[in-house]
Amino acid sequence: MKKSISLLILILPLLGLSIFAQYQVEKRFEFPLPSIVEVKPSSFIYFWGSLLGLRRVSSDLAWIRLLQYYGTLEGEEEHVHHLHHHQRGEYEELFPMCQEVVRLDPYFHYAYLFGGGTLAFNHQRYDEAIELLQEGIKNNPKFWKFRLYIAAIVYTKTKQYDKVVPLLEEAIRYRDCPEVVKIFLANIYKAKGEYVKAIAIWENILATNRDEWARSAAESHLKEMEIPR
């Protein structure tokens, strides 16, 4: 009995210290992820992933699922290849799938850039693109590229292409620039008759990208401009 009491005397201050330390952590650091209940994930896999402390893995799985979805032809056009994405389907689920990825991991910068760029430049869904990028700004106020993309999307929406070009030229200088932005800029150059600049972008895509669709698009554009690869 005496032994048990002396052990309890040892345990109680330690318990106090653990509670105090936890309180100190909470006081200094606000937990930076939204509750999984609020995220309402579409799959129980993401839900369980979060419960097991694998939230970023869940976000990665949702990201891979999004890429699989976007890489698959929709509906009747399944026999056709190498079409531009907006000719391959509407991809209605693209926006909610992007939202799910970034709500599972609000600091997944590339997912915002990819989603925003694809929705705006491939599907002309400017409002959804801007909404996604604004969510990005809310979660990552210091990540300035989202503002750059929003500006480019707004100018594209209002067809002020002369203002879009310098913004996109800046965007493609960074390693994490999605291919969709490069392709969009190359198409603007082509439409404006600035073929040398367009060819440089297509060649860059061929040299650096492994995505089959982007590569075949680059090849067909270069072929069209009679640059054999």
Binding site: E26, F31, P32, G53, R55, R56, D105, N140
Partner: peptide
């Protein structure tokens, strides 16, 4: 409380 210790889940937090 493992949430706060789960740094790998918010490794990208700015």
């Amino acid at each position: 409380n493992f949430q706060y210790l789960n740094i790998k889940d918010y490794i990208g937090y700015p």
